[in-house]
């Protein structure tokens, strides 16, 4: 019988993953809740676990002139206080869960969990994050939007682990982040938004609008963004309803125990409009 593994080194971990028999556990904050059983009984997992959270090789934050490189087992609280963490990502992490959860949860877990309401994904989409997947066969690097297929679905292979999250350095003249939850802290997102832009001399040079909890996966529509890049902010403002019109078809929220379709949709669009109005 294959049993749970607590490897001491990363190389050992990749070796164990080779046959696709194990499931990686990082902080476990998603997995332990999702698979929980009656108190006192162990959670029920479909596969033996590979405990990766304490692998020293995967706990790092490095930077060079081009990008920031985050080891996949770096906890969110460390990122929250790290001086090199991009400020948008920092802002988002600051509104995720609570300190007790942040000390033991990871970006990688948030990515593979692939919840429509996942918060860090807002920043990862906005910052054009690249995900480094590794197996004994080697590495592949994917942009975040290629990584995620749908709710709970990613392209991660059975023998792979997320090794690193990379984000190219970027700078914006305007950024905005809003998480709307059921309360002001430790809440699951009802609707979330990040906007970032570079406006130079009244001309939009870069524009990125990302929404979460309004569709099966995060919404970032580069074709719509491109329509506005290179245009004068005045023109875009005159035509602001067109932007919201473009997004309306991508924003398809649901009614659930946390909110409803109408609220999510209108709030998402309103947040986008509001952001664009601040670009002046």
């Amino acid at each position: 019988m294959v049993s749970h593994a607590i490897p001491k080194t990363y190389a050992e971990a990749l070796e164990i993953l080779k046959d696709g028999t194990h499931r990686v556990v990082a902080g476990g904050t998603d997995m332990m809740v999702r698979n929980r059983a009656w108190a006192g009984l162990p959670p029920a997992f479909d596969k033996p676990l590979l405990f990766a959270f304490n692998l020293p090789e995967l706990k790092y934050v490095r930077v060079d002139e081009k990008a920031i490189y985050i080891g996949s087992m770096t906890d969110l609280e460390t990122l929250l206080h790290h001086e090199d963490t991009p400020s948008l990502l920092r802002e988002v992490i600051g509104e995720m869960a609570s300190p007790a959860i942040r000390y033991v949860s990871t970006l990688a877990g948030n990515i593979v969990n692939a919840s429509p309401a996942a918060d860090s994904l807002l920043a990862l989409y906005a910052l054009d994050a690249q995900i480094v997947l590794e197996s004994v066969e080697g590495k592949r690097v994917l942009p975040i939007e290629k990584m995620i297929l749908g709710p709970g679905k990613t392209v991660l292979d059975h023998d792979e682990i997320i090794a690193e999250i990379r984000m190219p350095k970027s700078s914006f003249t305007h950024t905005a982040f809003r998480k709307v939850g059921g309360r002001r802290a430790d809440a699951i997102t009802k609707v979330g938004f990040i906007g970032c832009a570079v406006v130079d001399d009244g001309i939009i040079r870069d524009l990125r609008l990302i929404f979460n909890a309004v569709a099966p996966t995060l919404v970032r529509v580069k074709s719509v963004e491109a329509l506005h890049i290179g245009h004068a902010i005045e023109d875009v403002l005159d035509d602001i309803e067109t932007i919201t019109h473009h997004y309306a078809e991508h924003i398809n929220p649901i009614d659930d125990q946390r909110s409803n379709r109408a609220y999510r949709k209108e709030t998402a669009l309103e947040l986008a409009r509001h952001f664009i109005k601040t670009l002046q």
């Binding site: 609570s98 309360r183 802290a185 430790d186 125990q257 946390r258």
Partner: peptide, 13 residues
């Protein structure tokens, strides 16, 4: 059906 969905105030609220 649980403390995640049924929201009561935190110290921040």
């Amino acid at each position: 059906k649980n403390m995640t969905d049924y929201v009561i105030p935190t110290a921040v609220d």
